[in-house]
Every structure is written in structure tokens, then in C-alpha cells.
């Protein structure tokens, strides 16, 4: 064997060792947090928890769909401890599939009923941490220029003057849009709801991939109306865009942002501490401080000033259990695909 082959052999061995050395891991009092709200809020929440408990938090921010897919893929050997934030459906689905663990938080009694219901209907595998109602983000400049009256009801959106002026996410890809579809089904009944969606389709310029994208588009003037969660619209307004949020007059659905402990979490103790902490008023105040204006789930939490007032919004009695189930979801989505999505 020549010198160079020796070197070759040694190099591979060393490279192999380096690869392994890279695989060393975290220390004992840790928490791995999967976070599905905005990055600032995630960061602030992680810092607040560390400050409170001294536990180091390793936080990863991903959308709720991505996180759900990851937790599912990791199920045989979980790497995360807590999944905090993101719309409630994938949390419920994870609970249904036994990917998350049962835990009843200490301050459970302080929570709003909607947050408690989220927990009870999943066998305490998840719990509500905030709520946000569905509505319209409206670009006031465009409407003023086109001299069109601002829409205030679902029924307004199918009027001809909104042709090409409406954006909503694709329910296949976005939980927000699915919530909207389920809301309409609960509001109008299934067949009338699909008639409505077909009429709405004529006015929709684009079904976006992500749920909050129509709010961004409304802010930028790419569309006049986006169907989104109200707090996403508020964020745009706060960022200086001419956006106004409107809750539809007929009533509307809402999401319950949720939190779950991952089953088989490596740091289950820390995860439970985080669970309790996240439901405290102090922790929930981090949202508004970081430009997230959802309604906190603890009754003692202060409602941020800019948050859309839930008491001014006509909320329907959204059936999370039914419309969160895989069967119902599949049925509605394939009907939407066939009757709405396939149209030109």
C-alpha cells in the first residue's frame, strides 16, 4: 500500500469519527420546544420560560402542518417535548393518533370554556392556549379607489364587484381555509355551503398555499379582500399597511391555538412545567408584546388592546370534534376538490 492510500484510509476513518462527534446531544435539564406561532413570539416564550425555571429551551419554529408531519415521522423515537401553538386541528389529530400525551395542567380551572373543551374532547392530550376568529382583511385603499363598499358579511363576497378581488388559502394546504370551509358548512348546511363556495370561486383570484398569505396580499394591495384569521389582519395593520379587519355579520368560526406534550418526550418533567407555565397570565402576555393579537385562553390574562374583541364577534358553536376528524375532513376536501378546485 502506498503512502497515498494510507492517507486515504486514515482520512475516511477520521471523517467517520467527526460525523459521530457531531452527533452528541443536549444535557439533562433541557426542553425541546416545537413552536408553531410567529418566530418573535416563540423566542420570547422560550426566553420567558428559561427565566422562570432555569431550564434551557431548544426551540424550533415550524408551521403546524410541518410540525405535525415531523412528530408523526419521529413517533418511534420522539425528539421533541412540547408542541406549543398552531391551529387546533392538527393537535386534535395528533391526539386522535396517540402521538401526544395526557396531562392535566394545574391551572386548568382558570381557562376559558373553549380552551377547556379542547382539552376534554381530546382526553386531555391537548389544551387551548389562544383563540382567533375568522374574518376578512380588507385593503381600504383599493376599495376606496374602486369605490366599492367594504364587505361586512359572507354574502357580500359573492357580489360581482368583488370579482378577482378575493383571496383565500387552499383548504387542501391550509388549516385556516379548512376552518373557513367548515364554518360555512356549519353556518349554511353542506349543500348550500358548496353552492356558496362555487359562487365565491368566481371572485377568487388565487387560492394561496399558506393561511396567512391572503392577509399579506391584502396589505400589499395584491388583493382587496383576504379571508383570514382576524389577528393575521391586525398584524398587517400594525405593520403600517392600509388593512382593516372585519368579522362577518352572519357569524364566523374560529381556531383554538393549542398545545400538546409529545408522547415519549425525552424531558417529560420539563414539558409539564412548560405546559403549566404557558397557561399562566404572565406567559400569555408575551403574545401581545410580540405583535401577536390572539385572545389568550386564561381568563385572568389581559386582552391586548389591538386584539379583535371576541365579544364583538358573532361566533358560531364550532364543532371541533366533528370537523377535526379525518373522515369528515377527507369528505369535505375531496368534495371541494371536485366541485370547486377543479374549476377554471
Amino acid at each position: 500500500m502506498t503512502r497515498s492510500q494510507h492517507r486515504h484510509a486514515l482520512a475516511s476513518a477520521v471523517a467517520g469519527l467527526a460525523l459521530i462527534a457531531g452527533a452528541s446531544a443536549a444535557s439533562a435539564d433541557d426542553l425541546t420546544l416545537y413552536c408553531s406561532v410567529q418566530e418573535e413570539w416563540c423566542q420570547a416564550m422560550a426566553n420567558a420560560f428559561t427565566k422562570e425555571t432555569g431550564i434551557t429551551v431548544a426551540m424550533t419554529r415550524k408551521s403546524s402542518g410541518e410540525t405535525y408531519a415531523q412528530i408523526k415521522a419521529e413517533a418511534a423515537n420522539p425528539k421533541g417535548d412540547v408542541w406549543w401553538g398552531g391551529t387546533g386541528d392538527p393537535h386534535l389529530q395528533a391526539a386522535e393518533e396517540g402521538l401526544t400525551a395526557e396531562y392535566k395542567p394545574a391551572n386548568f380551572a382558570e381557562l376559558h370554556p373553549w380552551a377547556q373543551k379542547q382539552a376534554t374532547q381530546s382526553g386531555h392530550r391537548t389544551v387551548g392556549i389562544y383563540a382567533g376568529a375568522l374574518g376578512f382583511a380588507i385593503n381600504t385603499e383599493i376599495l376606496a379607489k374602486k369605490k366599492v363598499k367594504e364587505p361586512s358579511c359572507w354574502a357580500d363576497l359573492i357580489k360581482p364587484e368583488f370579482k378577482g378581488e378575493i383571496q383565500i388559502a387552499n383548504p387542501n394546504s391550509s388549516g385556516t381555509a379548512y376552518t373557513a370551509m367548515a364554518t360555512l358548512v356549519q353556518l349554511l348546511g353542506e349543500n348550500p355551503a358548496f353552492d356558496y363556495l362555487k359562487q365565491l370561486h368566481v371572485n377568487v383570484s388565487q387560492y394561496t398555499k399558506s393561511g396567512a398569505a391572503p392577509a399579506v396580499a391584502a396589505g400589499r394591495g395584491e388583493t382587496a379582500v383576504g379571508i383570514v384569521f382576524l389577528h393575521d389582519g391586525v398584524t398587517q395593520a400594525i405593520n403600517g399597511f392600509p388593512v382593516k379587519v372585519v368579522a362577518p355579520c352572519e357569524g364566523t368560526g374560529y381556531e383554538i391555538g393549542s398545545m400538546s406534550i409529545i408522547k415519549g418526550a425525552p424531558n417529560a418533567k420539563s414539558a409539564q412545567r412548560f405546559y403549566d407555565f404557558a397557561l399562566s397570565p404572565a406567559a400569555q402576555a408575551t403574545g401581545a408584546a410580540n405583535k401577536s393579537y390572539q385572545v389568550p385562553s386564561n381568563t385572568k390574562s389581559v386582552l391586548p388592546e389591538q386584539a379583535p374583541r371576541m365579544d364583538k364577534v358573532k361566533l358560531i358553536d364550532y364543532d371541533f370534534k366533528k370537523y377535526g376528524s379525518s373522515a369528515e375532513r377527507k369528505k369535505l376536501l375531496s368534495r371541494w376538490d371536485a366541485e370547486v378546485g377543479a374549476q377554471k
Partner: peptide
């Protein structure tokens, strides 16, 4: 993309989207 769907985005949302 707007309304123009291609395989790669469709795959992404088949994994992470509401369809899971």
C-alpha cells in the same frame, strides 16, 4: 404560482397541509 400547481408544491402540501 398563483393557481398554477406543480408536483413539488403539491407534494409539500400533501405532507404538511390540511390533508396530511
Amino acid at each position: 404560482g398563483g393557481g398554477y400547481e406543480v408536483l413539488s408544491t403539491k407534494i409539500f402540501y400533501a405532507v404538511v397541509g390540511a390533508q396530511n
